[in-house]
Amino acid sequence: MERVIEIKNLKKYFNSPRGMVHAVDDVSMYIEKGQTMGVVGESGCGKSTLGRTIIHLQEKTEGEIFFNGRDISHPKQKELKELRSSLQIIFQDPYSSLNPRMTVEETIQEPLKIIRKMNGEELRGETERLMELVGIDRRLRLSYPHELDGGRRQRVGIARALSLNPRFIVCDEPVSALDVSIQAQILNLLMDLQDEYGLTYMFITHNMSVVRHISHKVSVMYLGQMVETSPTDELFEHPLHPYTNALLSAIPTTDILHPRKRIILKGEITSPVDPEPGCRFAARCAYVSDGCKKTQEMREILENHFVACCRAEEIYQDKINLEEREP
């Protein structure tokens, strides 16, 4: 299957008064056509920065980015404008991602006017088509964002992202700010659109349950580093990295008849400023050892399942032993 997006050794550092922040540190991954890559992690792990860097909304510090096999690491002005059509983004906060002074119609028409250079009848028709596609009532076209609820605003954001017929969309926590019942509506919409148009998504979220539903593959990030990546079901059935384990066990479940043994992490997240070499999770890890001080390589431990942990095999073996002992 062709790889729509591929990144190699991508780094994004920010200069801050406290020092150099390693927001994204040496991340490599690829996403195939029509698939959703879930990127999970908690605040400060760099997932949002990763998404924005890939689509050139922020400039990378180092590394390579490929789109449909083409090297787009250093696009020229003209190329960048073309890329805007193919690479789009849906934002998290429906309250701040829409210009408060523009109506629904104007917001959706902006990209159509700027890039696809539409006007008149064509413009109106396309706007209507997009609104219908995402499920916004035509009568709302002259409404302002503050008159709409979060779910509808998010639909406007999705219509805007779709207006340029992109191939790849970064979904940056698109449902985190919505109520549960609206979340389900929007997730269903995104999945339907993917099925119909063969869209490729990078779905960024901190919500593991959501990611399980919508992603084909999942990558787990911690403090700028990618620590584990594998097909979705595989990750949830056999989490290998200690952080992934903790993350999964921390999720409160509604299945109260089968309470999960929660792994409570000790300590707080360490700082992403001028970090020490080696695994950044070591400070909170129950399996920390000397080997953790070296840079961890992503290694294939199970089929198609990569982990950046020097003790991954051991931990996996321990788990199996434990499961065998308990029925």
């Binding site: 549960v180 919500n207 349950s209 959501v210 399980r212 539903h213 999964l248 479940t253 509604t254």
Partner: peptide, 9 residues
């Protein structure tokens, strides 16, 4: 509400 929650299980 229960149905709208993506559940891990």
């Amino acid at each position: 509400l229960f149905g709208a929650i993506p559940d891990l299980s």
